[in-house]
């Protein structure tokens, strides 16, 4: 079975862990060997939160420099920060809505010009998908579904052996009943309207 190393990155509170967990769950239900790694503890307090989903029999829980097959970033600056983990052949999916770190307000560093760097990504990596996942999540009924929008986009690319139907089933079984509809809609919007 082909292996896939998928790196999720975002900011604490964006639901990266839930996204990787849902993908891991869907993969397991589909009989695909899977490992998911998560960041817990101190790193979660407003910091960068990374998780990985390793498909196809890989045993390692983490991904080295240049070895991610797919990067899914919940925030554009974090996509830029994680580029070293990608190779020229990698696929990059990123939300385009910035969350400006407080260190920018303190004047310690500038928030980079993301229009420029998104172009850079498109010109230098095999496949790049940049979308306003916040807007799609809002359209689906909850701003908290950014993670599921991005899962929809990830699945739409056809690079991993998890289908939209499998993920819908996983959402139905693992998300609180009152959020199921919004999440299914978010998945659909991410799948259909990613524009890539």
């Amino acid at each position: 079975m082909e292996t896939k190393k998928i790196l999720f990155t975002g900011v604490g509170g964006q639901g990266t862990l839930l996204a990787s967990r849902l993908l891991g769950q869907a993969a397991m239900e589909a009989g695909i060997p899977v490992r998911v790694s998560e960041v817990h503890g101190m790193a979660q307090r407003g910091g960068v939160v990374e998780s990985t989903v390793m498909l196809g029999g890989l045993k390692s829980p983490i991904i080295s420099q240049a070895e991610a097959d797919i990067l899914v970033s919940f925030e554009p600056l974090e996509a830029l920060r994680a580029l070293g983990r990608c190779s020229a052949g990698s696929t990059i999916i990123t939300n385009t809505v910035p969350i400006v770190p407080f260190t920018v307000d303190l004047g310690q560093a500038e928030y980079p010009d993301m229009d420029y760097w998104l172009d850079f990504m498109k010109n230098n990596f095999a496949r790049v998908c940049a979308l306003d996942a916040d807007a799609l999540a809002k359209e689906a009924g909850t701003t908290r579904a950014v993670n599921v929008v991005l899962l929809g986009t990830l699945i739409s690319l056809g690079e991993i052996p998890v289908s939209r139907q499998m993920m819908e089933e996983t959402i139905r079984q693992n998300v609180k009943p009152k959020f199921i509809d919004a999440n299914l809609k978010a998945l659909g919007l991410g799948f259909e309207r990613a524009g890539c």
Binding site: R45, A66, E67, L83, G84, G89, P112, W117
Partner: peptide, 22 residues
């Protein structure tokens, strides 16, 4: 063989997100 990586040397110093009190 390491996978080829585009030249990332132009990326500026990025703002950090150190953990903070809520």
């Amino acid at each position: 063989e390491r996978p080829k990586r585009p030249d990332l040397s132009g990326i500026p110093t990025l703002p950090l997100r150190p953990p903070v009190l809520c």
